[in-house]
Simulated assay, not measured.
Amino acid sequence: MNILITGGAGFIGSHTAEYFHENGNDVFVLDNLSTGKIENIPFINQENFFNIDIRDYNKIEAIIKEFQFDVIVHLAAVVSVVDTVKDPITSNEVNVEATLNLLDINKKYNQNIKKIIFASSAAVYGNDPILPKTMDSMIRPASPYAIQKYAGEQYLKIYNSLYGLPTVALRFFNVYGPKQDPKSQYSGVLSILKNKFDNGDEFIFNGDGLQTRDFVFVKDIVNAINIVVNNDNANGNIFNVGSGKASSLMEMFETFQQIYNKTISYRYGDERAGDVKHSLADISSLVKLGYQPNYQVNNGLKEYLNSEIKLGI
């Protein structure tokens, strides 16, 4: 297949690109490298890489017209909740307007498109206290980021129902794994914890440490993407992607203590604006399509840490 991955030089994107490349597909990556890294995708040929902003609509249109992609995995986004709180206008341009533009260009000019997959987020559920989060759960976005992700996935549904575009939205829960940059402010908490334990630095809990998350290993995310790419029954739908289990941040801290066989100092700070308190995915609808998470926290963390050692990170 001919596959375009927007944001493909980033954390999730590079793993997705590598998987489809290794399985014999012709993979193209579009990334402006504002947060992605070209060294994440050494297997991508130079002619298959587009250093383009997702908002450069004329260039996006030209690429779609020329290459007529079978599959587009749309991961390019402002992924920091903090950044969307600081600048909701710019993040809306990237997360909503550019997504809508991508859909419309494919509707008009791509006769070959078989699937467009959009990376949404568990953030759309907000602080609704009822767990687990199902597709019938209340939507209570608590940040511009969450609103923008919800808008994006709803546009995918509309473009499927009105225009027959084969779209799928995936609500990612808390993703972790190799290549996640602990130094960036949008990084996942587990990569930050790893960095603190590696360097013996103090860790700051944003809140009381009792907030819970459904941590999902990046390879399970890629597995979910592959499943919906190859299943027409997924079209027009939205799915949660998680492990189906929740862990508190304090529990994760204690797991790191066990793996590293040491402890580090920590303290409690203020909760971050827009953060949710508890999160847990109901993944039953995706399981019906064949999804099964292969990683829970213990084996996921061990593979994560071993992979980072092999990468020299």
Rank of each mutant, 00 (worst) to 15 (best):
S143W: 08
S143G: 11
P144S: 13
A146P: 12
A146I: 12
A151N: 13
K157M: 14
I158F: 12
I158D: 12
S161W: 06
G164H: 00
G164D: 03
P166A: 03
P166H: 02
P166W: 01
L170T: 01
L170N: 00
F172S: 07
F173W: 06
F173D: 03
N174S: 14
N174K: 09
Y176H: 00
G177H: 02
P178F: 04
K179T: 05
K179V: 03
Q180C: 10
K183I: 09
S184K: 15
S184T: 15
Y186F: 13
G188R: 02
G188T: 05
V189S: 14
V189F: 11
V189T: 14
L190A: 09
S191Y: 00
S191K: 02
I192M: 14
L193V: 10
L193H: 08
K194I: 07
N195I: 08
K196P: 08
K196M: 10
F197R: 09
F197N: 08
D198Y: 06
N199C: 08
N199I: 09
E202W: 06
I204R: 10
G207V: 10
D208R: 10
G209Y: 07
L210A: 15
Q211I: 04
T212Y: 03
R213F: 01
V218F: 00
V218G: 03
K219N: 06
D220R: 07
I221C: 08
V222L: 02
N223G: 07
A224Q: 03
I225C: 04
N226L: 06
N226F: 04
V228Y: 00
V228K: 04
V228P: 04
V228T: 02
V229D: 02
N230P: 02
N230L: 01
N231F: 00
N231C: 04
A234K: 05
N235Y: 10
G236H: 07
